[in-house]
Design a protein around this nucleic acid. Structure first.
Lengths: 234, 234
DNA sequence: TGACATTGTGTATTTCGCACACTATGTTAA
DNA sequence: TTAACATAGTGTGCGAAATACACAATGTCA
């Protein structure tokens, strides 16, 4: 009839709290802008559960590894992506979120400029690819909730921080920057008001160069004064 | 000379990831307003490490327990406090944050009205008490960082949510409510502007009663329309 | 019934967000 | 060389919201 096999593993652990411990993972929602769309980095799962389904990059925490290092390592191992802006998002721990065992996932979201990217599936995943956020495949586990929360956080932060600069290449024009905000906010912005506002923040400066891009007037190039910090504004 | 005793415990665990798992705890920063001050709920540790030192209430997650339930349970067990407003804060996981073993702490912060409180040290703690936030004793582990972050979050939320209502008793006067904001923001507010603003939010309503409180004109009583929800405003 | 202590109220000013249209300039092709 | 092109770059006016500011109203208590 039906055989139920229940696997018991014996582990020798140096701890002082003699009760079963949950597994801890990190999962990362990496966003970028490609082809005028907000896109999300996914990996195809190489093994069960959810084998063959798309999921966020992520994996188990090593016992002597910092949480953030784990997120960056998994990202690198599974997708080859490095050098992203990373921020902790939320910790998901529903008892039934993983069929194998109790798993607590500390989730992060990350942003990166599309010109920095070399995505390639690495050892731990069968495949890695960018998907437009408005056209995602079904995701494994509770990863849809993670993505939704990450997207909310990202949009909320546009209004009171310089987080959008994380999507920009080293130099850019004001028109390009405005385009980024328009994609993220999903609405058209007024050119004069946008420029007044963004320059008023005092977070970008002219490079002195002009960017030529077609048979028309070239645009001034700007750079972010503090590209590695996300500043709180207002 | 010096004996180093290294305890190894053998655990039989039904999991599929054959590597050592960290312990997972929750810690909770509970705030209330007492004696015109923002105060924090602390417990005195009954056992090592940091035995006898003050710490946030909290403890180990049961393997089949939801994270939030764990926070509420530990709070109840260690301090007797129940019925608070609870929100996830951040997950702390530095490899060296606990001398015993690797511990990932999912932290929460909580708010409660001072009239709801019956604090008493329960089984798991030697003592429990409120301390003014501006006069805290040294805290165990990395709990100072947790408190600092929780306080930041609380103050930030005052500006764009109705979180301050969580400190109010069932009915209150506008003067009392203004006092709460003044304590939390640590600045004086203009009475007319405050009333215009707070009534404009449409989140409180008159009870119809008057509150007598001395030899002077009584004040109208108000209640929160939705006391269990924290609304995002603006 | 009058002194007291706190409640409750309005207006003027400044600041910020938002709507709105034309001139400037480098490129390219005739 | 010059004129058409395509995008870059710029200022002002209006309404809403935030802020500054002072006195009349009311229940209590002696």
């Amino acid at each position: 009839m039906l055989s139920v096999i229940f696997t018991l593993r014996v582990a020798i652990l140096p701890y002082s709290y003699p009760y079963p411990h949950p597994a801890v993972t990190t999962d990362i929602a990496v966003f970028t802008l490609r082809a005028q769309k907000l896109q999300l980095l996914l990996v195809k799962r190489a093994s069960p559960p959810f084998q063959g389904q798309w999921a966020l990059p992520g994996g188990f925490l090593n016992i002597d590894e910092e949480l953030e290092d784990c997120a960056l390592r998994e990202l690198q191992e599974e997708t080859g992506v490095t050098g992203v802006y990373l921020e902790q998002l939320y910790t998901f721990g529903k008892t039934d979120r993983d069929p194998r065992e109790r798993v607590i996932s500390v989730t992060y979201y990350a942003l990166t400029a599309s010109d920095r990217l070399k995505v390639q599936a690495a050892s731990d995943a069968a495949d890695a690819a960018w998907y437009p956020l408005d056209d995602l495949p079904p995701l494994a586990f509770d990863h849809s909730s993670i993505v939704e929360l990450a997207h909310q956080r990202l949009v909320a932060k546009l209004n009171y921080s310089t987080i959008a600069f994380q999507f920009m290449p080293e130099t850019f024009t004001l028109t390009e920057l405005q385009g980024v905000y328009e994609i993220l906010l999903n609405e058209q912005l007024d050119k004069r008001n946008f420029r007044k506002w963004i320059l008023g923040l005092g977070q970008i400066e002219e490079t002195g160069e002009l960017k030529r891009n077609g048979n028309h007037r070239p645009a001034r190039e700007y750079r972010v004064k503090n590209p590695d910090r996300v500043e709180i504004i207002r």
